[in-house]
Amino acid sequence: MIRYIERTKAYYRAQGFEQDYQWAMNVETPFSRPARPLKSARITLVTTAVVEPSIPKPIRTAKSYAFSDAPADFDTAELSWDKITTHTNDRESYFPLQALNARVAAGEIGSLAPRFHFIPTEYSQRHTRNEDAPLITEHCLTDAVDLAILIPL
């Protein structure tokens, strides 16, 4: 297993950054049990893959999109992933919409929520904690979501 925190610190030090990034740390973890059995539950996806690359990275904020507007290929160029070893040409490898739809069609999952959600990979924990996460939570409550699968690249 790769220790990403240590590796990232070393990498940015090698780039001449003097202060290490402060990774989010929480001791207590909130926990909710699913409100409904899977067969009747409504599910959504949350991704860090970019839907609108025309918006400059520093000002991207969380946004919700209709599943019908999900791009065939998200933009992942500006995200930090292993570009030497792999590629993101298969959307299902980070946004398994077809697989979810198949399970809804088969009756295994109750329904797909109307919207999925983009959360930008933010340097600032404050933006995520105080702005992006609450916005997505509000949208999920509006959509009567029971279950969310979050898939950060």
């Binding site: 925190i5 989010a24 929480n26 909130p30 909710s32 995520t128 969310a148 699968i149 950060p152």
Partner: peptide, 28 residues
């Protein structure tokens, strides 16, 4: 952090990820 906000609002979450140390530190 988003998972935590959702759970606090009563929505059950699961993260599928490959950077376990980061996810665990964040309290996922």
């Amino acid at each position: 952090m988003t998972a935590r906000a959702l759970e606090t609002a009563g929505i059950a979450t699961v993260v599928i990820g490959s950077a376990l140390d980061i996810l665990q530190r964040a309290g996922t």
